[in-house]
């Protein structure tokens, strides 16, 4: 129950170091991710607040998974009074192992959180190895 009582702490957003410069004049941040493994898949949860589902770009090339999110609708045209967090796009790359079935990756986006389900190929699924007595 300890975890549920915890109060959230402020964490500064980290800017991404990109090789190519962005054409948009706003910062690019590294989104926070959770990665967990179930029996059949690797699941990623990526925080990208302000990014609409249609503005998420997921690219898979060789073994590199690239996640890009473009923010929209963040009060352009209004006068800033107090700015405590930076508004920007999101970018993060991961190298996938060979045990992911790259053709069956599924992505959903809800409330600013991208969920990626990366199914494992059959041979990579956990097997229980029995120890034989001799």
């Amino acid at each position: 129950m300890m975890a549920a009582e915890k109060e959230l702490q402020v964490k500064e957003k980290q800017q991404a170091q990109q090789q190519a410069e962005s054409t948009r004049d706003i910062p690019v941040y590294i989104p926070d991710v959770d990665i967990y493994e179930t029996q059949d898949a690797l699941v990623m949860l990526v925080d990208m607040p302000g990014v609409a589902p249609q503005d998420v770009n997921i690219d898979l090339k060789d073994d590199t998974l690239t996640i890009r999110g473009t923010v929209s609708d963040y009060g352009l045209g209004e006068t800033p009074v107090l700015m405590e967090y930076g508004v920007g796009d999101y970018f993060r790359e991961f190298t996938l192992g060979h045990y992911i079935d790259q053709s069956k990756i599924e992505a959903t986006m809800k409330d600013g959180v991208l969920k990626l389900v990366l199914p494992k190929v059959d041979r990579a699924k956990a097997r229980k190895i029995e120890v034989k007595a001799e």
């Binding site: 975890a3 549920a4 959230l8 964490k11 926070d32 959770d34 990665i35 967990y36 493994e37």
Partner: peptide
């Protein structure tokens, strides 16, 4: 489930 990374906080 087994966690590889846990950066998203709750509370």
């Amino acid at each position: 489930v087994t966690y590889h990374r846990k950066e998203r906080e709750t509370g």
